[in-house]
């Protein structure tokens, strides 16, 4: 009996999580003028309008470029730091770990204010560079946590074998360590990209006037009213942000399997 209640409860929680999102997808295909019930028919017209909306296309480009750069910089910093923390004995290891994950322990609004005002005092105004630095600093802890978790599982024997067989440390890193690291690097980049792509809290503080990312563009559109176009944009975002990690997961699994065989 008790188990049935728990199962029902869990089902209700899943419904609570998914229903609003499902309604966004459903309404984005609504043929009616207004993005609301009742549905008057199925139509792709809002997606067509989306594809012709310059502001939204620009926002997409900005978000993708920003996300990719963030992923590359943040993962580079994160992988190097994780290697040091997992592979070497470092004095004060706990303190260093805490310092490196501090950006997620500080509320993002506070981080956003501090970074904006400090860089402004150094005459770095609201700009793409400021956005990038902000995104790097708050994705870094996530990258470090994910990469460290993966690194722990990689045995050192391969590298030691390579070194003892006469390869130089650099050769060993490029030909043995890096391929072994690939899934961790990949997971870190994916995580950084997704978090950057989704961010709005810091972005609203750092973005220069006239530059919008996809989330800030949606936010600006919400100020007027909820149009079917927003639902269509939401649907595109849902498929992107859900599809991307799923594809990523599949690739990571394949990489892991190749290594295993």
């Amino acid at each position: 009996m008790g188990w049935q209640v728990i199962r029902g409860w869990a089902l209700a929680v899943y419904l609570f999580m998914f229903l609003p999102v499902a309604v966004v997808v459903l309404l984005s295909f609504n043929a009616s003028q207004f993005g609301s019930f009742p549905m008057t028919g199925l139509s792709f017209r809002w997606f067509v309008e989306l594809a012709h909306n310059d502001a939204i296309l620009r926002a997409f480009r900005t978000s993708i470029v920003l996300g990719l750069l963030t992923a590359v910089v943040s993962t580079t910093l994160g992988v190097l730091a994780s290697l040091a923390l997992v592979r070497y004995w470092v004095p004060g290891r706990n303190l260093i770990s805490t310092l490196l994950i501090a950006p997620i322990l500080v509320p993002e609004v506070v981080l956003a204010v501090a970074l904006l005002l400090f860089l402004n005092a150094l005459s770095i105004n609201k700009s793409f560079l400021l956005l990038l630095m902000g995104h790097v600093i708050f994705t870094l802890p996530f990258v470090i946590l994910v990469v460290q978790a993966r690194l722990v599982g990689i045995r050192r024997d391969y590298e030691e074998a390579s070194l003892s067989l006469g390869a130089s440390p650099i050769q060993t890193f490029l030909q043995v360590t890096l391929p072994l690291l690939a899934p961790a690097v990949f997971a870190g980049m994916l995580f950084a990209f997704t978090i950057s792509f989704d961010d709005i809290t810091g972005t609203l503080f750092w973005k220069p006037g006239g530059v919008e990312t996809v989330p800030t563009q949606i936010f600006a559109m919400l100020r007027n009213s909820i149009s079917p176009e927003i639902n269509a944009l939401g649907t595109v975002m849902i498929f992107l942000t859900v599809g991307l990690p799923l594809v990523g997961l599949a690739i990571a699994r394949r990489l892991a399997m190749q290594r295993g065989s």
Binding site: V21, I218, I226, G234
Partner: peptide, 16 residues
């Protein structure tokens, strides 16, 4: 839902 954009999930309640 974790991966789905925060702003989308927040605004989805307006539809409901």
């Amino acid at each position: 839902p974790f991966w789905i954009s925060y702003i989308i999930r927040t605004m989805s309640w307006i539809n409901i």
